[in-house]
Computed example of a mutant assay.
Amino acid sequence: MATSRGAGRALGCLESRKNITGSACGLVGLVLTFTGVAGPYWPVVVVGLYGAGALIAPPERPALPDFPDPSAQLDEVRQDFERLRGYLAEVGLPPTAAERAGRLEEVLTALLDPGRAAELLAQDPEGLHVLARAVRQDIPEAVDAYARTRWWTRLTPGQRPPEEHLERQLSLLDEEVRRLADTLRDAEARRQESHTRYLEDRSQ
């Protein structure tokens, strides 16, 4: 293992920009030696040119991190959404909250369904972030807080029912997700209008 790492580092040094540039300059020194320009000091000339080349070579640029592309991220959110739907089915929400959660699920299903909406989301990092946050954080936290709070409400009656908070939270999330859907729809509408203007201008 240590030998392979050492060999990898040695190969990396050989392939580095500094070594390549220094070697090219060193070859110039050898040419000067063979033509008699360097004279008896040719080793100093060759080494000096190699060192100068290594110094002027541009620094190595580290490789970019290999992050998943937007399509892969969308696939991950789609898988997480399926897990979220299973969780919501097990919680046992009160009727009004269940109805609002169902409406929210419908919009999320439409946005995550492979098709044009998914293509637009793959090109919209902010929209993808909003969707992923709703699926992975906002909805699970809202439902989990309700599930934990309703147990305490049985011990301390007279408090504000936890389902009111849940219903309000689901309504706000539904509005946020629908705004995202409206934004994607408007983007498609602008694209269609632009194409119409392009055809109109071309026909003149």
Rank of each mutant, 00 (worst) to 15 (best):
L49R: 09
R150A: 02
E90H: 13
V47M: 13
S203I: 11
L184F: 07
A122N: 06
K18G: 14
L131F: 08
F81Q: 05
P62M: 04
A54N: 00
D138I: 07
P95A: 08
R136G: 10
R85T: 10
Q137E: 14
R83Q: 15
E167V: 14
I20E: 00
A89G: 15
S16Y: 08
P94H: 02
R100V: 07
L170D: 01
D66H: 09
T109A: 15
V135N: 05
L155W: 04
E90N: 05
A38V: 03
V28P: 01
M1Q: 12
E106Y: 09
L108W: 07
G26H: 01
L32T: 05
R202S: 10
F81L: 09
G86Y: 07
R61Y: 08
E60S: 08
P125V: 12
D144C: 00
R116D: 11
H165E: 03
R179S: 11
R202D: 13
R83S: 15
H129C: 04
T96Y: 00
R202K: 10
V46N: 06
W42Q: 06
G39C: 06
I139P: 00
L173R: 08
Q123R: 15
S71Y: 10
S203E: 14
R160G: 06
R103Y: 11
Y41Q: 11
R150Q: 11
D186R: 14
R103T: 11
G8M: 07
G102P: 02
N19A: 13
E164S: 13
L131Y: 07
Q73A: 04
P62C: 03
T153G: 01
E200G: 01
Q123G: 14
P162N: 07
L173N: 09
L32N: 02
T109S: 15
P162R: 07
L11I: 12
D113L: 12
A89R: 12
L49W: 05
V91Q: 13
T156M: 09
R17P: 05
V44L: 14
L180A: 01
Y50C: 10
L128N: 02
A189M: 12
A10I: 13
G53E: 06
E193C: 05
L112F: 04
L64P: 08
P162W: 00
L93G: 02
L104E: 03
P95T: 04
G51E: 02
T35C: 13
L180W: 01
C13Y: 10
E175L: 13
L32Y: 09
F34E: 12
L184Q: 04
E193K: 09
T35S: 06
T183P: 00
R185A: 15
E193W: 05
R133T: 06
G22N: 07
W152K: 07
E60V: 06
A110F: 13
